[in-house]
Design a protein around this nucleic acid. Sequence first.
DNA 1: TATTGTTATACTCTATAACTATA
DNA 2: TATAGTTATAGAGTATAACAATA
Lengths: 157, 157
Amino acid sequence: MLTKVSSQSAASARRRVPRGAPQLAVELRVTAVHLYRRLRSELSTDKVSSSQFSVLSMLDRQGPATPREIATHERVQPPSMTRTIGLLADLELIERTDHPNDGRQVLISLTPKGKTLVGETRKRRDAWLARQLNDLTPAERETLANATEILRRLTAQ
Amino acid sequence: MLTKVSSQSAASARRRVPRGAPQLAVELRVTAVHLYRRLRSELSTDKVSSSQFSVLSMLDRQGPATPREIATHERVQPPSMTRTIGLLADLELIERTDHPNDGRQVLISLTPKGKTLVGETRKRRDAWLARQLNDLTPAERETLANATEILRRLTAQ
DNA sequence: TATTGTTATACTCTATAACTATA
DNA sequence: TATAGTTATAGAGTATAACAATA
């Protein structure tokens, strides 16, 4: 299962020889997919899915938004977001209100129940990853922090 | 949407002050999810989905494997893999053969068509990410390479 | 006519429970 | 009895196309 790169010892692997963008792209993609799945597997006890929580989290950070704004932010098509919004509304975690100026639009906002859930879920949701990160050296965490910043710029484009 | 951390300029953000594991966990998770979705959005022209390609890619790297082995590697339950295998078999990208010693088991292997598709798809699939990586500095790529190695260890646990 | 949101429809991915065949 | 794989069933996430309401 492991490639030649990952068969290195954990200690020696912390510093690697530079490699070209294509090879790094493959490794980074595979790792991102695995991390995504691993993170998702930690959420099985949650009341909401990863996608659903992402919407709640966005609303918590930014305040009310229209379905289209949320869909754009989450990089899904409007009908997909309509569905997710419907599920979250059924759970009474969000609510729809009419837009004050534009009758076509709808404003989605967190209910108190939704806001509470965001706070409680966040800690639990990140517990596994935080534990893993705690086992790393400060230098390794610094590397991940820097990488996160780079990736954030990259995915924002 | 952006936190105070990400509001730093791209240049100054390359070196960051250390922070605790919990905060890093949140940022890393959000970034991983966005990267995953961004990568997936680049695959719309592919003939196979991200999950399907992951199976083909594993078989290409490791050779024939049983459905259970593939399911474990992909971190899904056996019935889910049965379905994916069925779809890939319908596309004639993989084939099932009886296990030589154990009548219960099945060996899944790439067909020539599947092997060709893996090679062709890989380049196209990683083109977007490779382009992004090419725009980075060598030091940034090195940071991502080191981070990838750390994350690989982390997700392997 | 353009935009927002929804509905209709369909497909993939995933899971749990139950079943069949083999060890 | 235990294991490998599948089938049955269900739900979530996603998409495109078509529609209604509003600007």
